[in-house]
């Protein structure tokens, strides 16, 4: 997993191409791209923070415009934050603007729903795009 973050763009490109070939609309494909980028970066940054080896499995099911994405990894256990409101507050001064924390917010906003399970030393994230 050298240059680990470089992996994500390549995976996303492959997935985008595949979704096109099976006829998923551009809008839905973009939604999946945005969410999957956040989910994969999260796995790489947190799940495999101290690891050079890891196993990541992505499974995508398409039923017309309904897309379900399963992301499973054997990295460190993590729990999605329960508070996934926008980190942005309008009274924020420039200095206090958050530079992070938008990832889970995007996942929550774009998916219809998502589930998280910890099973047999694996993290399983299921993302629904209805």
């Amino acid at each position: 997993m050298a240059n680990r973050q470089e992996l994500v763009p390549h995976l996303l490109d492959d997935i985008q191409d595949w979704m096109k070939t099976v006829g998923v609309s551009e809008g839905k494909t973009t939604d999946v791209q945005i969410v999957l980028a956040e989910a994969l970066n999260n796995v790489i940054e947190h799940g495999f923070e101290h690891e050079n080896m890891g196993e990541l499995e992505i499974r995508i099911e398409v039923f017309g415009e309904r897309v379900t994405v399963h992301v499973s990894d054997n990295g460190m256990e993590f729990t999605p934050p329960s508070n996934t409101q926008t980190p942005l507050k309008f009274e924020d001064n420039l200095d206090e603007l958050p530079e992070g924390g938008f990832g889970w917010f995007l996942i929550k906003e774009i998916t219809s729903s998502f589930e998280f399970h910890r099973k047999k030393d694996r993290n399983e994230l299921i993302l629904f795009f209805n």
Partner: peptide, 9 residues
């Protein structure tokens, strides 16, 4: 394509 890290930047 921009993700939340790009937005943070």
């Amino acid at each position: 394509f921009m993700d939340s890290s790009g937005l943070g930047a």
